[in-house]
Design a protein around this nucleic acid. Sequence first.
DNA 1: TTGAAAGCGCTAACAG
DNA 2: CTGTTAGCGCTTTCAA
Lengths: 333, 333
Amino acid sequence: MATIKDVANDAGLSVTTVSRYLNNHPYISEDNKMKIKNSMIKLDYMPNSSATQLRANKTFTIGVIVSRITNPFFSYLIDAIDKVVKQTPYHTLIMQSYDDVDEEVRLLDMLKQKNIDGIIMASLENDLSVIKQYQKYGQIVLIGDKSLAQSDIPTIGTEQEEATYHAIQFLLNKGYTDIAYCTGGHFLNTKHGSSRDKGYIRALADNHIELNNKRIYTNIHTIEDGKHIASSVIAMSQKDRPTSIFAGSDEVAAGIIQTFEANDLNVPSDVAVMGYDNQPFSSMVSVPITTVSQPVEAIGQEATHLLMSLLDDKNYDVDVDKLKLKIVERLSV
Amino acid sequence: MATIKDVANDAGLSVTTVSRYLNNHPYISEDNKMKIKNSMIKLDYMPNSSATQLRANKTFTIGVIVSRITNPFFSYLIDAIDKVVKQTPYHTLIMQSYDDVDEEVRLLDMLKQKNIDGIIMASLENDLSVIKQYQKYGQIVLIGDKSLAQSDIPTIGTEQEEATYHAIQFLLNKGYTDIAYCTGGHFLNTKHGSSRDKGYIRALADNHIELNNKRIYTNIHTIEDGKHIASSVIAMSQKDRPTSIFAGSDEVAAGIIQTFEANDLNVPSDVAVMGYDNQPFSSMVSVPITTVSQPVEAIGQEATHLLMSLLDDKNYDVDVDKLKLKIVERLSV
DNA sequence: TTGAAAGCGCTAACAG
DNA sequence: CTGTTAGCGCTTTCAA
């Protein structure tokens, strides 16, 4: 592959001049511009990005950490992010943590190694104190509950606790008082969705309902997980069953619903199921899912604009109005 | 950020020795190993990857081109690829072409700029002759119909034409003779799913059914596209409607089915709908989708192993047995 | 077992 | 308007 030196030689000029051409500097004669252009075409030249990166101490790549890309919430989020990034000189490096604490650290280390200039973290496994350590290596933007913003790490915050509170209240208003609860993390662990846990707890407390640990399902993510939960509910005697389930995601909700239907339990009359995310397929499953809608596109856009501004040392005012969550009522509750 | 020089200074050694330690060379005294290790920890050192990359003329990054990550087929494919890549020193850079020819070229140019060492192309917009030009800049592996393999570009080939032929034949056997056909590309253009087109045409021909251009829908990808098609079918007088639709993807099929149901057209009795891909949600929609199952995990694994072998200058025998497509019969046909 | 020095491809003072 | 030169952080001859 031709280098800048080859081009300079071929054009009979110095590498400096060629470099200037490359970077659109003023003060190059039209004549030489032509020569350089021709030599570049002739030699099929393209600047080597490793060299540019080393020199500039900048990679023009940002990382996006999600737990798993197959979760449609994350793939739509990434899509929204990538669409904004595409309009900049940056590239998007997608990184999956698979909900693993150590893997997340490994990904954060890429900041340290100058593999990437900044990170958008849409999943969070480690304590915020760990994340903060990495801010000195590059810009970090968090996506999650509003409360994360207290950490001094720039955050695109949504009202997860409020939304969960409202969702539980919604179930309560419909008469379901025995509400099982699924979370992707560990219940009331400081990380991972704990703000939703708080919303659940607060809603129960406000309605003088006691928290029942048997109704808590932790580390729940996939359709399969949903199926398992449904099976365990089916295995209970009828009077021991919860009357409703807050599934934590539409995927889990879909798995639950499918298994219930296959076993002749009616949703919602036997057991109501509340989803989360409002994914494209959620209105199409056999019992359309009542769910909490997250404005995933706006979240991705705001996060990216914020990170880009940080990288450019500029200010950016996040448009919080676009970040509202709301309940979408369909038939599963 | 500390450099190798800082570590060398701190340890009272030369950069060479530190570099040797980094690369696990033999012949370093245990004593010095300890010193280096301590200095590294003390200075919070991590090798700068831009420098390593420039020096090695290797980025340890591979690109994966898909048309859109929100298509679950692609997100599952990427997941499969990433899981294999994670076991190597490489990283995965995901690139979306959004079905755009020029964008695909821009992505291929990353090979030229040494931004990536190799590419897996799961979507194909440009002619193979264009792709071939890029082989001199890095390794390329194609994912798609078997026939792509003729191009001399390493390919993980599945029998798209055969599978489509069988799917159409399946519809025919069920008594549906008026079969509309959706494709993500342009019908019988050389690119993008044209092998499926051939399967469709061949199946009709073998059954002495004339091809009807009005039954061909091109550039169809999303749930929304499916809804539009369904609307246009609904707008036809009953006797003008096709009796079945080969949707080309489960997403499109889902959109079609939902719109039909919302307008009191029964699937399959009024119009049958055949999907493609067998996605996780396909069994859960209101009319579970009869579809062509692609072994997406195996495809991703084989493609990655093949690319890795190519990058390491080794041989790899693709396990073609794992690449079989098959019809999954549910209720939409 | 260790170190000096050259060089990967590029950019940016500085000098002209 | 153009060129000389140093250096980004790392690896690898070569010599000791």
